[in-house]
Simulated scan of single mutants.
Amino acid sequence: MANVLSMYRTVKRLGIPDSQIILMLSDDVSCNSRNLFPGAVFNNKDHMLDLYGESVEVDYRGYEVTVENFIRLLTDRWDEDHPKSKRLLTNENSNIFIYMTGHGGADFLKFQDAEEIASLDIANAFHQMYEKKRYNEIFFMIDTCQANTMYSKFYSPNILACGSSEFEESSYSHHSDVELGVAVIDRFTYYSLEFLENIKDKTSNLTMKDLFDYLTFDKVHSHTGVRTDLFKRNVSDVLITDFFGNVQEIIPDLSDSDGNNIKHGINDEEDYYIEKTVLDLAIEASGNSSDVLEENKTNTLVLKENDINKYLHNTIKSGHDAANSKGEGPITWWKTLASTTNGVIFTTLCFILYKFVIVTEPKN
């Protein structure tokens, strides 16, 4: 359990929100009566980091973790009333990271010690995903005995796979916790996490090849494997953050209500305002930057909230009136205003602006 919670913590640290993570835990170790630290799970004997904490969202737990549910999750074959929060809502532009761990053997992985999933089951599920355009690229990572056999049957394109041990080879734990009396984490996962901890932010240039090269026999005590023949890109060109982090390219919407590109043919003055953010325009509208900026005790310039709110109110009101005079609704005008702001600021303010426009729409 510490294996998967450690990986869960890492991808969250690198920016992937819970809304984009499906977490399946077959056993609730944190609440087990034999756990000497109730409500806590550790991946190291020093007990420095509680992996369970207060921000873990488990989507499938206990007897919900079955082979059937896992296959349904990948292929999205659910009843209509199945909660969206427990579905893998992806499309042809999605990069998917799948991490599996547990007891296994040649071409199988155990679920609940009662059933097994075979390598061909996963291969067929991935092919259904490919046919239904449910992914762009998949990175499959597995930590179990004879793990490399679990991706041997894959046949769908754009899948990169990595395993902890070869055929007829065991995977080993890293160390045991004498207080708990059990091994707390496996070597393959431990050193994968050690490498990933070197990534401090989402702008890292470390690649998947760097990760694979780091997982040597001296560290893992087994022969890790990588399968790249189905993957189109060279692993030395694939950034770690392509799968472990949430890096999004923000493209400003420069189209009008009819879908025409307003960037084409605009004059210099319009181009100037498109490149400005709402905050830039607020400062310039004051006529004097000293009216909008003030120095705090650390000599750092900060924006006066009242002046910014006043500018936003006047801007929104004038834009809203103009939209109504043209017979446009509030959403159309909000889209036009958003297209004149910087992408980062737009992301921060879009819900505020949208809500403000809807609330202040005049009654007929």
Rank of each mutant, 00 (worst) to 15 (best):
R187Q: 08
S257Q: 13
K86V: 03
F356P: 00
E131L: 13
L254F: 12
H221S: 08
F231N: 04
T360C: 10
D81G: 01
V220D: 00
S26V: 02
S6R: 05
S171Q: 05
S94T: 15
F139Q: 02
A338I: 03
Q146G: 00
D321K: 15
K110A: 12
S33F: 09
R72H: 05
S152Y: 04
F126W: 06
E54L: 13
T360D: 11
T189P: 07
D280N: 11
L353Q: 07
D291W: 07
Q248I: 09
F217W: 12
V56D: 00
L211F: 10
G163E: 03
L5W: 02
T75I: 11
S30Y: 06
S165H: 05
E270D: 12
Y60H: 03
I274P: 01
A106R: 14
I262F: 11
E166W: 03
N91M: 06
W78N: 09
L89N: 15
Y130K: 14
S204D: 09
V29I: 08
N44D: 15
N198Q: 15
K263H: 06
E328K: 13
T216P: 05
L88G: 10
G265Q: 07
E197Y: 13
V29Y: 14
G181V: 06
W333F: 13
V220W: 01
D210N: 15
F70A: 04
Y214C: 05
V357P: 00
S94N: 08
L193M: 14
P362R: 07
C145P: 02
F351S: 14
W333D: 06
H174F: 13
V4E: 04
F188Y: 15
W334H: 05
N205Y: 07
M100R: 04
I251N: 12
L5C: 03
K232Y: 10
E294R: 12
E64M: 12
L206Y: 15
H174M: 08
L23P: 05
N91R: 04
S325N: 11
D237G: 06
I358H: 07
F154E: 09
I352E: 12
I283Y: 04
V278M: 15
S339N: 12
R77C: 09
D253I: 10
T241K: 08
E361H: 14
S176W: 08
G259D: 07
G39E: 08
S204Y: 07
V226G: 00
I199W: 05
C350Y: 14
N198V: 01
F351Y: 14
E54Y: 10
F140C: 02
A282I: 02
V220N: 09
I21T: 04
Q112R: 15
F244H: 09
S94Y: 05
S170H: 11
L25Y: 05
T189N: 05
D291E: 11
D210W: 04
K202A: 13
I16R: 06
I138Q: 04
S156W: 07
S170V: 00
M129H: 05
S192I: 07
A106K: 15
L51G: 10
R87L: 09
K363V: 09
D256A: 11
D280F: 03
N309T: 10
I122F: 00
K84F: 10
G15V: 03
D307N: 13
C162I: 06
C162P: 01
D28G: 00
K202F: 07
E57I: 11
I316A: 15
I159H: 03
R87P: 05
D27M: 02
G163N: 08
E269A: 14
E68Q: 12
